[in-house]
């Protein structure tokens, strides 16, 4: 029950993108088409969950016993970059079809602040290992929900009759803002 609550809370109430404002670049950059948003979300979900797990391990098995917590950001970035590279290399061999659809998005995830943000939040909020896994999975789910919603909105906006003043980026930002407003409303649920 506790884990289910954590999953819902991280994916909807404390949504990584619209409430914590992490990972905004893919939200604006890769949401033009529903299919590419789907690919980006899946690739991010994979890396997010895996790196949340690995960074927890590094923090508790390496950094804390040796009292070198100040290396946290540096080593987490190292881990994330390695995980992304490893994912890409192995995916290219093991599942060429998946690599075809996700391929170009994978390297982009290295610089996605949501991935590093989740890893760091796991430490500051003192999660244990299953909790941090759930936190990573929930954030990935939240990222996926928001990306799909926003990409669907933008696909419709592309065909809508938008006033000339608001065309392009302004209307995208406004719709992202109103989507964020809606997600803020989830916090009243619990």
């Amino acid at each position: 029950m506790e884990y289910l609550l954590l999953l819902i809370s991280t994916s909807l109430v404390n949504n990584i993108v619209l409430v914590k404002f992490l990972g905004l670049c893919p939200l604006m950059g890769v949401s033009g088409k529903l299919s590419s948003a789907w690919g980006m979300s899946l690739a991010t979900a994979f890396v997010l969950t895996l790196s949340a797990f690995l960074s927890w391990m590094i923090e508790h098995l390496l950094l804390q016993p040796l009292k070198i917590e100040f290396l946290r950001i540096l080593s987490f970035i190292l881990i994330i970059a390695a995980v992304v590279q490893f994912t890409e290399i192995s995916m290219r061999k093991l599942s060429p079809a998946l690599h075809q659809s996700l391929g170009i998005f994978l390297p982009l995830i290295t610089t996605n602040c949501a991935v590093l943000g989740v890893a760091l939040l796991n430490i500051t909020e003192n999660h244990n290992l299953p909790q941090s896994l759930m936190f990573g999975l929930g954030s990935a789910l939240g990222f996926l929900i928001v990306m799909m919603l926003f990409a669907g909105m933008r696909e419709r906006l592309a065909g809508a009759n938008v006033p000339a003043l608001f065309e392009g980026t302004p209307i995208s930002l406004i719709s992202a803002g109103s989507l964020s407003l809606i997600f803020m409303g989830f916090s009243g649920m619990f």
Partner: peptide, 14 residues
């Protein structure tokens, strides 16, 4: 030492 070893290990892994 830790950072060097980590980089080395990840590099070898990759």
């Amino acid at each position: 030492l830790v950072l060097t070893l980590m980089g080395l290990a990840l590099g070898i892994l990759l």
